[in-house]
Design a protein around this nucleic acid. Structure first.
Length: 256
DNA sequence: ATGCCCAATTTGATTGGA
């Protein structure tokens, strides 16, 4: 059995104790982090190493930043998207136990029509082009992270209020579908799930307590890997912590 | 109500997140 997971920690400096607790309770073969918000020199490699994990990391000051935490050494590590010049640290990939693991912090996009939205669209174009190559090179592949896209209305607590808003636009959803069209499957939807399953809840408005959220953190698996998936779940527990991230981890379980 | 909370830097104010 293998487990892969993704978690937007919204500042690893703040969330490191929670990360170490979580890893102790949930041993995984690979975990990708987003929004570490740390320059490379500040990354807590020692603490993660002492927890029994190897780690690859790629960050910047204040914003973004990703990491790939693994039991076994990750091979052929790639940072950001080849062929897409990008100032922002958003992607880290490596091969672990024969599986290509890609972690991404997709751009937020802020608002349709904004410069940041245009950047998001261009980034998604670049990601899709690279993913097509990666899928040709790696039969077993998982793409996971904070997609900042709610794929369907069932992934939104109030689809009417969110219609056309960021994370829910037709353009973003078309990009999500384009990733699926490459031969990827949303692992979460392989299984019956409770209605109103979210991976993110706004810090404001008591949103977690009222369960008002979005499902924007995803795990997409290639056809070969899909055959091995036995479970996929969102772990809401860390969202109940004191000083939680606004995102919850998503975990996929695979047969050997 | 271009607001609420949270994190980080530009710090007792602003920007970005989602």
């Amino acid at each position: 059995m293998k487990k892969f997971a993704t978690w937007n920690v919204n500042s690893l400096a703040v969330r490191l104790p929670q990360l170490l607790d979580w890893l102790a309770a949930h041993p995984v073969d690979a975990l990708v982090l987003q929004e570490t918000k740390l320059t490379d020199d500040k990354f807590p490699t020692m603490e993660i190493g002492e927890a029994g994990y190897q780690v690859q990391w790629f960050g910047q000051k204040t914003y973004n930043g990703v990491a790939l935490i693994t039991r076994e050494r990750a091979e052929n590590v790639v940072k950001n998207i080849p062929g897409l010049p990008d100032e922002q640290a958003r992607v880290i990939a490596g091969t672990v136990g024969g599986v290509r693991v890609i972690g991404g912090y997709f751009p937020n996009g802020q608002a349709p029509g904004s410069d940041k939205f245009a950047y998001k669209m261009n980034w998604l174009d670049g990601l899709r082009r690279w993913l097509a190559d990666e899928l040709r090179a790696h039969e077993q592949l998982v793409l996971m992270g904070d997609f900042n896209i709610a794929p369907e209305d069932q992934d939104v607590y109030d689809p009417v209020a969110w219609a056309g808003q960021i994370h829910c636009t037709t353009e973003e959803r078309a990009h999500f579908q384009a990733l699926l069209n490459l031969g990827l499957t949303d692992a979460f939807r392989l299984f019956e799930q409770a209605p109103k399953s979210w991976s993110w809840w706004d810090y404001r408005n008591l949103a977690f307590r009222k369960n008002q959220g979005l499902r924007i953190d995803h795990i997409l698996v290639s056809e070969a890997l899909k055959q091995r998936v036995t479970a996929c779940e969102i772990d809401k527990q860390p969202r109940r912590n004191e000083r939680p991230s606004d995102h919850a981890p998503v975990i996929v379980t695979l047969a050997d």
